[in-house]
Amino acid sequence: MRAKRMARLIGYSLLQAGPVLVVATFMVFALMQLVPGDVAIALAGENATRARVEEIRILYGLDRPILAQYGSWLWKMAQGDMSVSMLSAEPVFDSIQRRLPVTLLVVGLAMLASLAVGIPLGLTAAMHPRRLVDFVVTAFASLGIALPGFWLGMILVSIFAMSLNWFPVSGMAKMATDPWGAVWHAILPAVALAASGAAEVARQTRSALLEIQSSQYMRTLLAKGLPQSQIFWKHGLKNISVTLLTVTGLLFNRLLGGTVVIEAVFAISGMGSLVVTAATGKDYPVIQGVMLTMVVIVVAVNLVIEILYAVFDPRITTR
């Protein structure tokens, strides 16, 4: 019966993710509509001849209705053909493929650090409400949320890379040939990125545990005479895991965005520097490619979380 429920939930979540992907890809496609003036001129370059502009118009199908354009664009994207960069003429798919692992490495490390620091801090604060620990954690969280990650990155560089020489100042090692070197390079960026993440996680964990502690079922568990440790480790943890899953999903989204700025500080050539260069240079295909990749990743992560959610919370049904 449980297997059946799970199968139904997975199917349902996949069905849910479908429309989100359609709308998301349409949004990425429709971004081009924001370009001021004639898109064909923008794509051809300002000095292009009239004939060249018309050629581009036909080539990109800009003369066709927008939904038809979207359809063929999506079809190309689905096949991995993301067109070529207007600046470097490199296929967008190739540069994304090269840069994505670097970004995911930094984000992954930052996720681990945020959760590993944020969850224990939040739990500790909630277990001693209104005590000094609670105050310190809350203050740390407020500070962390207001802290510009890229500025923290600079300070980390000046201390740990320039003065102490513990870590490399910038750049990234080749992941395929030197995986440990890559991790080594990713540590400072991940820390800079994780500060605000850990703060947010600590805050959410704290309020979730406080809410659980004041719930009526916690009172029942006390009235049943369960040992304190069992109440916390069995009931508290399983109940809070539901919240933590949601937090993890939001955290991933947040860190994936934050890494864009952090990559600039550490001169890492990941997705962030790619999209920033593209935005500065009006390289529209690259902008679209990066955004598409990122939204697909986020939707996929959310899908996994949705399914895990159902494992932890029996109340979630397909309705």
Partner: peptide, 24 residues
């Protein structure tokens, strides 16, 4: 008190839905 709660003295509450742990 813990050893007595549930064993010597039982207790039931007003709203059973909220008094039961939803995830077990």
């Amino acid at each position: 008190l813990r050893r007595l709660s549930g064993a010597g003295i039982g207790m039931i509450f007003q709203e059973p839905m909220r008094a039961l742990d939803p995830v077990f």
